[in-house]
Amino acid sequence: MIEIDDEVELPLIIFEGACSWQDRMLASLAEAGIGWKIGCRVSTFATLISALRAGLGIGLLLQEGLPPDCQSLNGRFNLPPAPMADFGVYLARDPSRLVEECGDFLRAGFEA
């Protein structure tokens, strides 16, 4: 189980490069007056999960992506809520039937 100390900067596992969802998370922490530091930088989802399992910090991911051996901190330790994530499905003007069906499948999943 993770312990969060108000006197110590929160170690974060963050993705390398630009990520608007991550930027919103950092802004939320700043607005809440929560200090943070980079515990680990990752480039893939698999690396993020490995860093979580190794206890290198906390990370931001969708609930659906949280493995059963990791815990959600949602609503705990006075942390601000995770920012909303916006997703979109974009297709070429005249996609193949298979691509169009895949796009319809993804849209339906996002709307659920």
Rank of each mutant, 00 (worst) to 15 (best):
A30P: 00
I38L: 03
G35R: 14
R93Q: 08
S43T: 14
Q22C: 03
A27N: 10
L48N: 06
Q22Y: 01
R97M: 04
L52N: 13
N78S: 15
I58N: 08
S28C: 06
T44D: 06
L62H: 08
D23E: 14
S50D: 15
P95V: 03
D86A: 05
A18I: 06
F45D: 13
Y90H: 05
Q71V: 14
M25L: 15
A85V: 14
D86I: 05
C70G: 06
A18Y: 02
I14W: 00
L66E: 06
G59W: 01
G33S: 11
I14C: 04
K37S: 14
R76V: 05
I49Y: 01
G65E: 15
L26M: 11
N78D: 15
Y90S: 08
A92G: 02
A92E: 05
S43R: 13
A85Q: 11
I38G: 01
D94Y: 03
I58G: 05
A32S: 15
K37L: 08
L48K: 09
G75N: 06
A46V: 07
G55K: 10
F87E: 10
C19L: 04
T47I: 00
I14M: 08
C40T: 03
W21S: 12
R97V: 12
N74M: 10
I58A: 05
E31W: 01
L91V: 10
R97N: 03
P67T: 13
G35V: 02
P83A: 11
S50P: 00
G55N: 09
S96D: 13
G57E: 09
S50M: 07
S50Q: 14
A54C: 08
E64P: 00
D69W: 04
E64F: 00
P80F: 10
L52K: 04
A32D: 05
P68K: 05
G65M: 12
I34S: 09
C40V: 03
F15E: 13
S50W: 00
Q71A: 15
L26W: 02
C19S: 15
I14H: 00
S96R: 03
S43N: 09
R24N: 11
R53E: 13
A18D: 11
A30K: 15
S43L: 05
D86Q: 07
M84T: 12
L56S: 12
G39E: 08
P67I: 11
L60N: 09
N74W: 05
F87Y: 09
I34K: 15
L61Y: 04
V42G: 05
V42N: 04
P81F: 04
G59F: 02
N78C: 12
M84Q: 12
N74C: 10
L56F: 11
G65F: 04
F45T: 11
G33C: 08
I34T: 13
P67V: 11
S28E: 13
P68Y: 00
G57V: 09
T47A: 13
S72V: 09
A54Q: 14
L73N: 06
D94S: 12
W21G: 13
G39F: 06
L29D: 07
